[in-house]
Design a protein around this nucleic acid. Structure first.
Lengths: 218, 218
DNA sequence: TAGATTGTTAATCGATTAACAATC
DNA sequence: TAGATTGTTAATCGATTAACAATC
């Protein structure tokens, strides 16, 4: 029985830490480290060993008393928990600066996401070659999403159109959004939304710089 | 006495919510809404009114009993808390897809960040015009950072070089990083780091899609 | 077997929500 | 003054850390 199927009610705090564990384990794996204890990992990652053990044990016992964790095994298991063994079909909606950058830069395939198409409302971009595909007009969305079983849309469109486009895409069968538009989407709760609000991140940076400067003055 | 100077030991959970408050208040302001109660705002933002009042009161009393909050005033105050009234000098290090996209797409100036230069180690990019500036070689970094009082560096370089480049930049006087490299920087604790790990965000999306699919099966 | 380290329970800490007195 | 809504204290909830028995 797959362990991740049992996994429910895991807090988003835990989920947010999984990619970082996965990254460190990947590096250890690449360095041919065979085993690691929660203590060693805690020193590398600057978190408590207790938290590491609690986090892993949300999904089952991956370690062995007196020995620690097998790096390869743990890496694979966390990969499965993160769903990297499943494949999904993805499109990018919005072929502006950010949309093009993500198309070129993100290694979607490596994470099981098949990048199938890119769309924009701007006629000037239609037919432009990005990576190995051509920017399509928004009018193609409905048939394309339905014909290609698209389940994920990356939204790199302005906030003025994002809410409406998201609703439209849900109508065509899209199940999840990676949202870069600076707005909160209004979609049914069974739709998964992961937002990257770059402006919010920049404001956080601004706050923390200021706080540091003020502290220094005292 | 400025309120934000008193503000200390505010949890990052609160800070993370400030940009969203700021966004909603900006929209209310643009719609010429004059006053709002924590109750009304809580319905708009889908958070508790209690949390809103607690969050604001970390920084001082911005409201008025029996009346609510003046939208314009509150917007300005949160702007000040976020440090938008201060100016900073910023460079982008890494002129690949993402660096170029951020240069073109982020409205740095609107948030008090003056975008002063962009750098890359790739000779082919040197001299390329991006927005209104030319990509410079990494060799220029030291003199440029020192001569232009650069305090913030946006890192859009591969993880293999990010740690070393960050350390180098700290040596030249950079005080803060907006880090897009998929690695944890190793800088002194007085240096502010705000990381945007796009891959981690994508993995979180992957996890949540999977979880939903598994739930549906049951 | 002895030593090491997990898995898990219990204790602590911090963040969120509820309640209500203060006051505009 | 009466009604509304904040500011703030108290109660609850959840997440993190500590401790240790289980066990490899």
């Amino acid at each position: 029985m797959d362990k991740e199927i049992d996994a429910k009610n895991i807090s988003q705090a835990v989920i947010s830490r999984l990619p970082r564990y996965f990254r460190y384990l990947g590096e250890l794996k690449d360095s041919n480290v065979e085993r690691i204890s929660s203590q060693e990992l805690s020193e590398m990652m600057k978190v408590t060993a207790s938290q590491i053990r609690q986090d892993f044990n949300n999904f089952g016992g991956f370690g062995q008393q007196g020995y620690g964790y097998r790096v390869n095994y743990l890496y694979d298991e966390i990969g499965k928990i993160l769903g990297l063994n499943k494949t999904h079909h993805l499109i990018i909606v919005g072929a502006g600066n950010l949309g093009q950058a993500l198309a070129n830069y993100m290694n979607f395939e490596r994470r099981g996401f098949h990048f199938k198409g890119i769309f924009d409302s701007n006629e000037q971009l239609h037919g432009k070659k990005i990576r190995d595909m051509y920017v399509q007009p928004m009018e193609n969305l409905e048939s394309f999403v339905k014909d290609n079983d698209i389940d994920i849309a990356v939204l790199t469109i302005p906030k003025t159109s994002a809410v409406a486009v998201a609703e439209e895409l849900v109508g065509y069968g899209v199940k999840a959004f990676w949202n870069f538009a600076h707005v909160d989407l209004n979609v049914p709760k069974e739709i998964v939304v992961e937002s990257v609000h770059l402006s919010d991140s920049l404001l956080k940076l601004s706050y923390n710089i200021n706080r540091k400067e003020n502290e220094d003055e005292e």
